[in-house]
Design a protein around this nucleic acid. Structure first.
Lengths: 196, 196
DNA sequence: TCGTTTATCATGCACTCGCATGGTAAACGA
DNA sequence: TCGTTTACCATGCGAGTGCATGATAAACGA
């Protein structure tokens, strides 16, 4: 068995174990032993791929970012109009089903953790401008297509849209909203921005 | 010294020590020893007022809620028009200066922690409906006064407003926005909802 | 065949954790 | 004056922590 091992696969495996631990018991419960057990490998094996706990968390954080990015790209590509892209992207970021709740729980845990760990904050900041400019771009396209009101500032609207989504995520994970209410709220918000 | 001691004051003192620990080193670093040291008292004394770590965290969480509620009430009372109340309330909830950043850092930590601790989630849910109905009420008053567009749904707008604020908090604490950008974004959002 | 490399493991170390316990000193009522 | 109550403290225990280390086994190149 030794010698030929897919390192990336192993790292991904570890990262996903970290995700499951965070999801199940919270960020405080993440330890090398706990993650090793969750990953079904010995602690030594985990240490072979990850030299420190902080690095392990960074790995898990990067993986979540990649995962979400891929999901958004797939969903967005399936839409026809800019407004549909915008709406579908936002819906993808909200905790509307089990998998999206899973992603957002972990995301929120890292959000809080990033406030105290600068390394994590740096990783967290990577994806943000990309997503924001994508949203703004789609917003502008929707304006050009006459789907959204032309007088609105696309850059500010994109920021508001994403902030709104993040706030809804927080509220929903604490137990304030049902998925139906969340979707309705998004649609209300977008409808208000329509052209006409 | 024994016998006559203000229990509430002691609890508040402990809660504030918890806040400082969370703010400085994060939720993971909260321990009975760390908090006792921060509070300038022995571990035994802390245990006398708080039987368990979970109870200690709940105490700190409730205190934060009370604190924020008081701040909002004070600021809101100083305004003249409903729209001013709305704007001032929102500004009070955003991390625009050191003290508001302090409050929001701790709030975000509890937000994430609540996802995993049901007791904390329950405590977290207490203040939410109160704040939301207050915002909706002010929104309606502003509509009646002709400050905000009459066709908007006040309840939904209140939810969006608060979600927006929470999302901005997240983003700002991770390092995306400056206080100036935050304030500008809020004003842009409100201006868009104006009557006329 | 042998030595090197790669992957994995078990174990140990110093430390911290939450929590329980037994003791102590000060103030009060009887 | 004495015993009870209130407030506080020091200490100990078992468990878990991140990390370092030395051993081990399998595959390869020479």
């Amino acid at each position: 068995m030794p010698k030929i091992v897919d390192h990336d696969a192993r790292r991904r495996h570890i990262a996903e174990a970290v995700h499951r631990v965070i999801h199940g018991k919270g960020m405080d419960s993440v330890s090398l032993r706990e993650v090793a057990a969750e990953a079904g490998m010995s602690m030594g094996a985990v240490q072979y791929y990850v030299t420190t706990k902080e690095q392990m968390l960074l790995l898990a954080l990067e993986r979540i970012g990649i995962w979400i990015g891929e999901r958004v790209a797939v969903v967005a590509a399936r839409q026809s109009t800019p407004l549909d892209v915008l709406r579908a992207t936002m819906l993808e970021l909200l905790p509307l089903d089990e998998e999206r709740s899973y992603l957002n729980r972990i995301g929120l845990a890292f959000q809080a953790s990033s406030v105290v760990s600068e390394n994590q904050a740096v990783a967290m900041r990577m994806g943000y401008p990309v997503l924001l400019s994508f949203l703004a771009e789609q917003f502008r396209a929707a304006q050009t297509a006459g789907q959204l009101a032309a007088h609105l500032n696309a850059d500010e609207e994109a920021r508001i849209l994403y902030a709104f989504a993040q706030g809804i995520v927080n509220a929903t994970l604490v137990g304030h909203y049902t998925p139906e209410e969340v979707a309705a709220l998004l649609d209300y918000h977008l409808a208000r921005l329509r052209a006409g």
